[in-house]
Each structure stands twice: as C-alpha cells, then as structure tokens.
Computed example of a mutant assay.
Amino acid sequence: MREKNIQLVSPGKNGQLIGEYGEPVSPPRGWIFLPAGDAGVTRKVTAQGKYWRVQYKKGRKTISKGIWAPAETILEAQQTVAAVRQTEGYQKKRIADLQRREKKQELYEGEFLEAVEKYLNFHDCYKLIARTMAKAITEHATPVGSGTVARTQLIPLEERASRAVIAWMRHKTTAYDKMQIARVKGERRAVRRELAQQSVQLLRQYRRGETIAADCPLRKAIQSQLKQFNHE
C-alpha cells in the first residue's frame, strides 16, 4: 500500500497514532517526530510536502502536537533555520519585531483596561475598587497566548471586556472552582449562567453606590488583590 505524502493523524494510547478512519498507523521507516513549537522549522519541513501532522480536538480548538517527517528533511530544516538565525540581519529584524509586538501589546492593554473600567461603571465612591479590579482583570486576561476571551478578535472590545469581568468574578467571588459539577451536557454552562447573574447583581450595588457589607466577596477579592499589587 502506497503511503500518503501528507496525512492527518491523532495521538492514541501509549504513543500510538490513529489514522483518519480510526485505524492504528505507524510512520514510514526513517521518519522522526518534530514537536510543535518552532514555526520556522515546521514551515521548512512541511514545504517539502512529505509529512504527517499529529493533531487532536480540545473543545472547539484543533491543537497540533507536531509532525512526523523524514529524518533528513527535519535535520536539514533545523540546520538551515539555525544558520539564518545567526545572521546579523535576522537578529536586527528579530529585535525590531519584538519591539513592535511589545508596543502593540502595551497599547492593547491600555485599551482593554479602559474598556473594563467603562463596563464596570462604578459609582464615584468605588472608583478605586474599579481601577484595582480593572487592572487585575487586564493583567490576567491580556497576555499573549493566555487563551482568554480578551485575546479573541471575533467579538468587539466592549464584549471582550464584559466577558472577562464575569469570568474573573466567577473565579474570585464565587465557589465555582470548588464546585462538583455533574458531567451532564449543558450543566456547566447552566452553572456559569447562574453565577454570571449573581455577579451582575453584585456589580449593580457598586454602580449605584450602595453600602457594601464587610463580607462582600468582591470587596474581599479586591482587598486581596491590593495586597498582591503592594508586594509586587
């Protein structure tokens, strides 16, 4: 049977690979595995048009673990990429790229912080709490690669901010992380929806400037956050 030059396979048990029809498969002799992580080398290898990509589904996401390809192809790609990365031109370009990304990230963090504060819209007497909360949420949600809703470009900034607030409150002001949620379809979503409604009710008290009880979970979370900021 002739081997396919390009194939998608899934990881199985004990290092086994599973083909597109659920059958166990083994890479051709002389092939080795290149873990995901170095996009430059991976592109060089896949450009040769002879590889197997190992990937799996996690929720709605498709995650790549790496590729199998002829050993000589991978080694040649690694050597070529390493040589290019040693050149002065590459080093200068790399520094410029990093500076550009840092500037872009800094601007986004500022925009996101403002969007969170705008969504919170706390009464003037709770502005310090709003600023502390917005800073904590921004630091948690905006890092590149964090996988949070703040990193998606599929929804408007305002919606990203509101969802990030509710997510942060779910973990900081409710018992969600310790809950034993039944493995029933839709159950976790229902719990999150109920907790979100509680969070919205709590936010309204701060927006109206109401007197907040000493044992308020949000007040406790903010006090803890302030201590953390003071130690940084």
Results as ranks from 00 to 15, higher is better:
Lys13Asp: 14
Leu17Arg: 04
Tyr21Lys: 15
Pro24Gln: 08
Gly30Ala: 10
Ile32Ala: 12
Ala36Asn: 11
Ala36Val: 10
Gly40Phe: 00
Val45Glu: 02
Val45Asp: 06
Thr46Leu: 10
Thr46Pro: 09
Ala47Val: 03
Ala47Ser: 15
Gln48Asn: 05
Arg53Glu: 03
Arg53Thr: 04
Val54Tyr: 00
Gln55Phe: 01
Gln55His: 02
Lys57Glu: 02
Ile63Glu: 11
Ala69Thr: 08
Thr73Trp: 01
Ile74Thr: 06
Leu75Val: 01
Glu76Pro: 00
Ala77Ser: 04
Ala83Thr: 14
Arg85Trp: 02
Arg94Lys: 11
Ala96Thr: 07
Asp97Glu: 12
Arg100Val: 05
Lys103Gln: 12
Lys104Phe: 05
Leu107Thr: 04
Leu107Tyr: 03
Tyr108Glu: 06
Tyr108Gln: 11
Glu109Tyr: 06
Val116His: 06
Tyr119Asn: 08
Asn121Val: 00
Phe122Cys: 03
Cys125Met: 05
Leu128Asp: 15
Met133Gln: 14
Ala134Thr: 00
Ala136His: 00
Thr138Asp: 11
Glu139Phe: 08
Glu159Gly: 10
Ala161Cys: 10
Ala161Pro: 13
Arg163Gln: 11
Ile166Asp: 00
Lys172Ile: 03
Lys172Thr: 02
Thr174Leu: 09
Tyr176Lys: 06
Tyr176Asn: 11
Lys185Glu: 10
Gly186Phe: 04
Glu187Asp: 08
Ser199Cys: 15
Val200Phe: 14
Gln201Glu: 15
Leu202Val: 07
Arg207Ala: 09
Pro217Lys: 14
Pro217Asp: 12
Arg219Asn: 03
Ala221Glu: 01
Ala221Leu: 07
Gln223Asp: 10
Phe229Cys: 01
Glu232Leu: 06
